[in-house]
Amino acid sequence: MSSVAEERSIRAPWALTAPALMLFVGVLLIPLAMTVMLSFHDWGQYKGIEPVFILKNWQEIATDPYYAEMFWRTFRIAILTTLLTALLGAPEAYILNRMSGRWKSFFLLVILGPLLISVVARTLGWALLFGGNNGLANKLLMSLGVIRSPIPFMFTETGMVVALAHVMMPFMVLSVWAALQRLDPQIENAAMSLGAGPVTIIRRIIMPQIMPGVLSGAIIVFSLSASAFATPAIIGGRRLKVAATLAYDEFLNTLNWPLGAAVATLLLAALVLIVVGSNAMIERRYAEVFR
């Protein structure tokens, strides 16, 4: 290889990526670092933000049970949402995969399309259906005599979980779907020819193979649910706060930025730990199914 070409191939990639790299360092890494620093600053109602290094905010989060409860609620909702999407999304992906060509792509579009539709619009739908006495589904069910009082949905954790599961469902279906695509199309026939019935095929052949897909879908859904803002804000309102809505309030209502930054930093750190940890675990556990 000529030295000119060699030199080019060392310099060229850096020259090409330099603008993007500078953008990311300048307006992503620096702001993130500033946020972490902010969480160590002091704040007072009248004095505003004081750029000193203290642990006040972190102490407050560690000692005040209000924060423990709020984080516990955040993760509880995220876990339940994840379970719900896995329990419903995985079978649906499997059913979808067995449909014939045209129906398959149609329903795939119907189920995955909402991924790109505004979360506000999607959550609004749930509020319209179950929003107290005026909720359309509530009204319908009451007039049919199925229920006597409106189903409690708004400002409840159940409501948040259902609406979040609806928002997150496409991620789970997509992830399981991708795992199903990697399956040998003859694998079910192979199992059947060896004498396996439908239940055995699903339990012994399909499930173990799509499990990595379910788990990686679960990680996505979990981390998105734990940091979700729009849905908890619309369904939970001011009464039922999660980490993201709390940070929002601290920033834009209370104006206690350092405390909000501490909440956000903690959320980010917890999520990174959970996501990286479980990714590593899955990869180790399913080494032979991957690759």
Partner: peptide, 9 residues
Amino acid sequence: IPHVVLGIA
């Protein structure tokens, strides 16, 4: 990165 965190940053 959660978008709340990005928003704050």
